[in-house]
């Protein structure tokens, strides 16, 4: 069986913690020996999920965000959990350019970026209870001849 490694952390939903969270995940995933681009992809996806929790789930009020990471083989699994207001219509929320907060200049690209930069994305949510965003990426499975 392949070795696994897990970490979990919980922090306040303050925007200054966005960089802390993505850097922590980037540091944790170095064990997979990823390329710089793979690290950048994961950092962007984590940043999107955390930002969503801060702005949408908690409406900029300070509560807790839980971030879990699990490494297995060449794969990193990430779960971002909030205990905020939840998403009533997940498919709608995931539509590119859809945003409930245009006045904050939200681009509506958060979930689209998570999908573009990770291999798998799953969202579970319960209104009034919170949301879990699960993402997965396997590193090193890109052919060097592949182009963007």
């Amino acid at each position: 069986m392949e070795q696994t490694n897990e970490m979990m952390m919980e922090f306040d939903s303050r925007s200054c913690n966005e960089s802390f969270a993505r850097v922590a995940v980037a540091a944790f995933m170095t064990q997979l020996n990823p390329t710089l681009e793979e690290v950048a992809d994961v950092k962007t996806a984590v940043s999107e999920a955390i930002t969503n929790a801060i702005i949408h789930a908690y409406d900029n009020q300070v509560h807790k965000i839980r971030l879990e990471c699990r490494l297995e083989g060449k794969t990193i699994e990430i779960a971002v959990t909030d205990f905020g207001k939840g998403i009533p219509d997940i498919p709608k929320a995931m539509e590119p350019l859809f945003t409930t907060r245009p006045e904050l200049e939200r681009s509506g690209m958060g979930f689209a970026f998570m999908e573009a930069f990770m291999d798998e994305l799953a969202v579970e949510s319960q209104v009034g209870k919170g949301t879990v965003v699960r993402m997965k990426k396997t590193v090193g499975n890109r052919s060097p001849f592949e182009e963007d």
Binding site: R22, T44, S47, E105, G110
Partner: peptide, 11 residues
């Protein structure tokens, strides 16, 4: 580093 918040700013 830039995420979708940067896109929101530029747009």
């Amino acid at each position: 580093f830039m995420d979708s918040s940067g896109i929101g700013l530029v747009m």
